[in-house]
Amino acid sequence: MARLHGKRAIITGGGNGIGAAAAMLFVREGAQVAILDTDREAGERAAAAAEAEGGEVLFLQADVSEPEDVEDAIDEAAGTFGGLDVLYNNAGGAAPRDGSFLDIPLEEFWRTVSVDLYGTFLASRIAVPYIQEAGGGAVINTASIRALKGTRGADAYSAAKGGIVALTRAMALQCGPLGIRVNAIAPGAVLTDRTRGLGMTDEIDPQWRVAPGQPLEVAELAVFLASDEASLVNGAIIPADGGGAAF
């Protein structure tokens, strides 16, 4: 039987990169999937690609930093699927204007925190009651290698992802008794269309001392954490970085 057979999942930021790869894998493993993204064109493209795997896929345009958007989208997904079992908080990312805390534009700091950290908080706050009603399930958050070690050049992103690490552990304590596992994936450098646009290549990065990963490699870990195979995994922050955090 497929690893996610019968599970109903939401993937935020599912239009591109890791999110789009996860949507495809979740459907392949038997889940119904709702993709949330601000980019309608990308979201619809990702939904069509995932649906080609033979499952039910729903695209909902939403900005995870806007409470009304998130509530409407999650309510619609849960209503369409008849419930919710999995939330994958994948939306977020650093931006070209991120940098040192000494000179990063103030609006860039708040933009990053509002999407990455606040967006994770909002989606979890709204989705967890549905998951509890379904009898339990999983929440998967997205941290970063930058939350696990000191790095240069993306202090807003590092702060937001560090907040997600702390939030994940707090949520796990509260949600565990409800039958809901809450874990976080901490990717290292991953080669996506966005990171290519920021200048990343497939060469070994001197900062991380490893070559970038591929979206599917991170998405495979998300499938595991969403599945019943991860029944004993709660409150974990799992690196997916080729060993970058170890150096």
Rank of each mutant, 00 (worst) to 15 (best):
A9D: 10
A134Q: 14
E68M: 00
T201C: 07
A77G: 08
R125I: 04
A219Q: 03
D228P: 10
V64P: 04
S114H: 08
A211S: 13
L216D: 14
T195P: 15
M24F: 00
L225S: 11
D193P: 10
T151W: 06
E203Q: 13
P96K: 01
I35M: 11
D116C: 02
G135R: 10
D228G: 13
Q174N: 12
P206E: 07
A123C: 15
V165R: 05
A184Q: 11
E41T: 14
G6Q: 00
E56P: 06
Y88L: 14
E220I: 10
D37A: 14
A246W: 11
R3P: 05
G150N: 04
D69E: 02
S65F: 01
P239D: 00
V165L: 04
S124M: 08
E51A: 15
D39A: 10
V165A: 06
V139A: 10
E220Q: 15
S100Q: 02
K7A: 12
Q32S: 15
E29C: 01
D103K: 09
Q174D: 14
D103T: 11
A20S: 14
R28A: 15
G179V: 13
E53V: 02
A245M: 12
A138T: 01
G176Y: 07
I104S: 04
E44T: 09
R45H: 12
A226K: 06
G92F: 13
A154L: 12
A78T: 14
D241K: 09
R28Q: 15
I10L: 01
G197V: 02
A49T: 12
L167I: 05
P187M: 12
L221E: 02
F59N: 00
A172D: 10
A147W: 01
A42G: 04
G19C: 06
R146P: 00
S114R: 09
K161H: 08
G197F: 02
A159M: 05
R40T: 14
S124P: 02
A34G: 06
F101G: 04
V86T: 03
A49R: 13
I104R: 07
R125Q: 15
A91I: 02
N234G: 08
